[in-house]
């Protein structure tokens, strides 16, 4: 299966008019960080706790900007109340790209971070799309369109089995 390249991710963000990436690094995103930090059209807003990503995005959206949230599934689950109050409660049309730690395509998941990820999203009634390779990357545009249309957060689960973001640029 083809891998998911950081350049393809960044292209999707730019094509959809993302103005800010509110993010907390995870182990898969370093090369994406390098690309984003060199991209003049996108402003990086680093947070130290994923819950702040939702309130920050709410403020950016209130001011007419188009933020994207880039976090890991572990942090997403820690952010439940912020997702509820700031993300859903304020109808923020934001795509949350979530590193799917522990995801495997083999049906056997041993990492509880992965085990609870989709269950968490179901509990919050957040729709989501799985992106594992460049061939799936156009689902990111689908998520952007849905977030704008429905005026609520939509998730993109980045299930790259730990290697996709770390391929050569």
């Amino acid at each position: 299966m083809a891998e998911l390249s950081p350049a393809r991710i960044l292209a999707e963000l730019k094509n959809n008019g993302a103005t800010h990436v509110v993010w907390l690094p995870d182990s898969e995103t370093n090369f994406l960080y390098v690309l984003m930090s060199e991209e003049p059209s996108i402003d990086l807003v680093p947070v130290s706790r994923e819950g702040h990503a939702f309130s920050t995005a709410a403020g950016l959206a209130a001011g007419g900007q188009k933020p994207v949230i880039l976090i890991q599934n572990t942090g997403m689950m820690e952010s439940g109340d912020s997702l509820r109050g700031w993300g859903l409660g304020m109808n923020v049309p934001v795509v949350m790209m979530v590193g799917y730690r522990g995801w495997t395509r083999h049906g056997v998941i041993t990492d509880t971070a992965a085990f609870y990820t989709e269950r968490f999203l179901h509990a919050f009634n957040i729709n989501y799309y799985l992106v594992e390779s460049d061939e799936d990357a156009d689902r990111i545009s689908i998520a952007f369109a849905e977030a704008q249309r429905e005026k609520r957060p939509v998730a993109v689960l980045v299930g790259d089995e730990y290697h996709g973001f770390n391929v050569s640029r």
Partner: peptide, 9 residues
């Protein structure tokens, strides 16, 4: 964080 986002926007 909300105020930060708004101020940046």
């Amino acid at each position: 964080s909300f105020a930060l986002g708004l101020a940046l926007a």
